[in-house]
Simulated assay, not measured.
Amino acid sequence: MEQRWDGSVVLEAGRLLFRGRLGTTHAHAHAAVQVVVVRSGTVELADRYGGRLAVSAAVIPSRATHSLHAEDAQGTVAYYDSDSHVGRALRSRFPTAPGDRVTDWTAAAVQSACPPDAPGGGRAAAAPHPAVGRAIDRVRSRLHGPVTLEEVATALHLSPSRLGHLFAEELGLPFPAYVRWVRIRRAIELVRSGATLTQAACGAGFYDSSHLTRVVHEMFGMAPSQLLRDVQWEPGPQRIRPSGPGLAGAP
């Protein structure tokens, strides 16, 4: 029987943080840098090549396909936005692309001194290249509707190919993947504020709730119904406590 996720979740600028009982995900790849720290029990990570390893800590870069299986495990999982201070620092642990094997993730964790639940660790940072910073601001201000590379590039007086190259170089992921990640974060914020899944999908710019469901499966390895089941929102900014399954694949 698969272990259910059960713990507390914090959503703040640049970071999505889970602490509690870790569960299981199917294979997925997110657009954030993920940190997993196991406090007790057993957690096994699997990569796209069939590599499997029980881990005590791991740093998983964006776009790396993986799955997680836990048995009687407690720990912390954090997702750091690719444009955050910590996200950038953690990406530097992978000097050679693509860093998509489980042994890469455990080696990166050994090099990393930043605990996933350190206060303020998720503060957002401006991208080094001014065009990327302006593009990020434009994306975030237009999540209620379509956001395309061509439209954003035109607004910044750049060619789409140039802006796409800058995103890949500065953030380590394609422009569309970044947009999907920011939309998911916005949908979670809306649900926290009392929106239904359908309302959250619309407000975050997804075509419909089915579209949101597909993207959550792709980036978290589970369905939104599992992600948000029995959620109780704690007082304070952007904080939730699920009593059922929580964020799959989260500190």
Rank of each mutant, 00 (worst) to 15 (best):
Q3P: 00
Q3A: 04
Q3V: 00
R4Q: 13
W5D: 06
W5C: 00
W5N: 01
G7T: 08
S8Q: 07
V10W: 02
L11Q: 12
L11W: 10
E12G: 12
L17E: 11
F18L: 12
R19G: 02
G20K: 04
R21M: 11
T24Q: 08
H26R: 11
H28P: 01
A29C: 14
H30R: 05
H30W: 04
A31S: 15
A32K: 03
Q34D: 10
V36N: 10
V36R: 12
V36Y: 15
V36P: 02
V37W: 06
T42A: 14
L45A: 13
A46I: 00
D47K: 11
D47C: 12
D47E: 09
R48D: 01
Y49L: 05
Y49G: 07
G50D: 14
G50I: 13
L53N: 00
A54P: 01
S56E: 15
P61E: 07
R63F: 03
A64Y: 15
H66C: 08
H66L: 09
H66R: 15
S67E: 04
E71G: 01
D83Q: 08
R91H: 10
F94R: 00
F94P: 05
F94G: 02
P95L: 04
T96L: 10
T96F: 11
P98Y: 11
G99P: 08
D100Q: 14
V102R: 11
D104G: 02
T106N: 01
A108V: 06
A109G: 00
V110L: 15
Q111F: 03
A113K: 08
A113S: 11
P115G: 10
D117A: 13
A118F: 07
G122S: 05
R123P: 00
A124M: 14
A124E: 13
A125L: 13
A125I: 02
P130C: 13
A131W: 00
V132S: 03
V132I: 02
A135H: 02
D137F: 01
R138M: 09
R142M: 05
L143P: 06
G145H: 12
G145V: 01
P146C: 05
V147K: 09
L149N: 03
E151F: 04
V152D: 07
A153G: 05
L156T: 01
L158H: 05
P160Y: 07
S161H: 06
H165R: 09
H165T: 14
E169T: 15
E169S: 15
L171Y: 03
L173F: 03
P176C: 09
V179I: 06
W181Y: 08
R183L: 12
I184F: 14
I184K: 10
I188Q: 09
G194M: 11
G194Q: 11
A195R: 14
T198M: 05
T198D: 15
A200N: 14
A201K: 03
C202I: 01
C202P: 00
A204L: 05
F206L: 07
D208C: 06
D208E: 04
D208A: 12
S210Q: 12
S210I: 00
H211R: 10
V215N: 09
V216D: 08
H217A: 13
F220R: 08
P224A: 13
S225Y: 09
S225A: 15
Q226K: 12
Q226L: 14
L227K: 09
D230F: 12
D230H: 14
V231T: 13
W233Y: 12
G236D: 08
Q238Y: 03
Q238L: 14
R239M: 13
P242I: 05
P245R: 07
G246R: 05
G246Q: 02
L247G: 12
L247W: 13
A250Q: 01
A250S: 06
